[in-house]
Design a protein around this nucleic acid. Structure first.
Lengths: 345, 345
DNA sequence: GTGAAAGCGCTAACAA
DNA sequence: TTGTTAGCGCTTTCAC
């Protein structure tokens, strides 16, 4: 029978005693703070090594920092988000900071619960990816803890923001399809219920970018938008509606890859072929899109670049909370694959 | 210029003063602990409400619990893991515990960093999903903090484990394919480098289950295993090898859905059709599998059930650290879709 | 450059 | 049932 009592943790006091110095000295070494001679540092480092000491983040947090960065992702299932996360962790792994994620949260309520939980755990900074909460809530969070908002248009003096230019992304798709000879290019958008939030959300920007690009190409008359949701089901239903049109579109620009999946399904079900009868393009360049059997043309947001920027800005803001807020907008690129081609003649 | 100084947090002392009681009383109410009259509870609750007080988890952790559960996922990209997570959060959302995730970690080193970070942050319990660390490390972790290991065979007195029966899962696939009339059923496995770990990993169990099922059906002579990795690339390469066989298999059982994606690609590239020329089945029933254009036959592990069990066991262990360890093994089910059919005649 | 001592917000003994 | 008090492990004045 082994003792179920967990072995007492090595504390800063143990290290101090072992190194024959004060706890203050140890603390200084831990934080690379000013006021410790090289010899002292060496002594302390050795003691830490020998004792296998690791500082307790919770205790540190009570006075200083917890060295923890919280990342909130709206939906772990969306394969786009891991890209962002890679960028964040990549930028942070050389530092003393550790990243922890909130569990996927859909609605506003869930989102608030997660952000509050992170604040309550003394996190040093937060990265909120595509949050749906109203702006005031975001600003409230940002007032309490350094915050970077990712993937949401509309800037705030309270937090930094990073995102890609969805209008440009939509234009890339429309331009590509038009270049192939398409004119009847339809779009499936995510229907935004909350009008105040609307303009800040990427989906609205994509639909907007689609309309503008169509107009710029003189295709005003061909603008055709179906409002559903950014889900596979939404794509399926949207495509069914589009396929039943008298003048069927020859190309569909789905606002997200997952939507394009539903479109592909509906098209196959209708006995039509892609891209022979109809071209399909998505947005996000998710893992789905790259899958061999799918091979979907899609817009790449450079997720890891977004994540890297978010992490960098957050570190800067932690270092200097007073600094003016920054907005970074990255340019998306188009990845053409096998679902787009010239329209049937 | 608004004051960049974050507003001082409301503490338990503020609540106590506002409610005209001691901090102890407030603490008791917070923890639903014994020794507070109903009137006192009401008073305190009201004060908490009025002041918008929320306890600081880090400070609580210094003496008691942090009310935080850490979940380690090996790879956020794998769409199977969110299912587990749903089960975990579903089981925990009614409690005071909050779930936080580690960022996806591939190797042993990353895994150790994440588990240590969670321990250092005073987490009350850990759920490790498909860890690759050697057993001794897992037992070391479990000695320090209540731990549940998910998706790894091989039991330990130090921690509870939850998983599905991969041998049965493999048998389901082989049985299904044999029932359709297939005899030349090949398998693509993940090559395990570490021999000691080997037997505990699901991939080894699946390969083992495949071999046993084939023998049980009298198909010893047809056993055909290709060793690559559980990646799309691995599936592609494995399939290329299988397709080049003199006696080409009529069905491929890929050890994971992502592997099946690579197989589908290779098959299409070879100008063969699925399931007309060759049947393909995967494992995990990921979101991929359900996608309309893919529609892959796959084994469903009931991920959310696994997660629910893990969370339940963890709560039990937190409540009673001394209790004997438990192993839960769930039965997988087969989801048949459009990639499997009778072999060509 | 160094260390003693106070205290972060909370919980757990213990006393009343 | 209630309140007083002493820490938890660490950082931070502020003396020396």
């Amino acid at each position: 029978m082994e003792p179920p009592a967990p072995p007492r943790r090595v504390t800063i006091v143990d290290v101090a005693r072992h190194a024959q110095v004060s706890t203050t000295a140890v603390s200084k070494v831990l934080r690379n703070a000013y006021g410790a001679s090289p010899e002292m540092r060496a002594k302390v480092r050795r003691a830490i090594e020998e004792l296998g000491y690791r500082p307790l983040a919770a205790a540190r947090g009570l006075r200083g920092q917890t060295y923890t960065i919280g990342v909130m992702l709206p939906d772990i299932r969306n394969p786009f988000f891991p890209e962002i996360l890679d960028g964040v962790t990549g930028c942070l792994e050389a530092t003393d900071y550790q990243v922890l994620l909130g569990p996927g949260c859909n609605g506003e309520k869930e989102e608030a619960r997660v952000t509050e939980a992170m604040i309550d755990r003394g996190m040093d900074g937060l990265i909120l990816v595509a949050p749906v909460s109203p702006r005031p809530h975001l600003e409230h969070v940002a007032a309490v803890v350094p915050t970077v908002v990712v993937g949401r248009h509309g800037h705030s003096p309270a937090y930094d923001s990073v995102g890609d230019d969805d209008v440009t992304g939509a234009a890339l798709v429309v331009g590509h399809l038009a270049g192939l000879g398409h004119r009847r290019i339809a779009h499936i958008e995510h229907h935004e219920t909350d009008p105040t939030r609307s303009v800040e959300m990427p989906n609205a920007q994509r639909a907007d970018g689609y309309r503008r690009a169509m107009r710029d190409l003189g295709l005003d008359q061909e603008i055709d938008v179906v409002s559903t949701t950014y889900t596979q089901q939404g794509g399926y239903e949207g495509a069914r509606e589009l396929l039943s049109r008298a003048r069927r579109p020859t190309a569909v620009f789905a606002g997200a890859d997952i939507v394009a999946m539903g479109v592909l399904e509906a098209v196959a079900e209708a006995g039509l072929s892609v891209p022979g009868d109809i071209s399909v393009a998505g947005y996000d360049n998710t893992t789905f899109a790259a899958l061999g059997p799918i091979s979907l043309t899609s817009v790449d947001q450079a997720g890891s670049e977004i994540g890297r920027n978010a992490a960098r800005l957050l570190l800067e803001r932690i270092a200097n909370r007073g600094k003016p807020s920054v907005q970074v907008s990255l340019s998306p690129t188009l990845v053409t694959r096998r679902t787009t081609a010239a329209p049937p003649t």
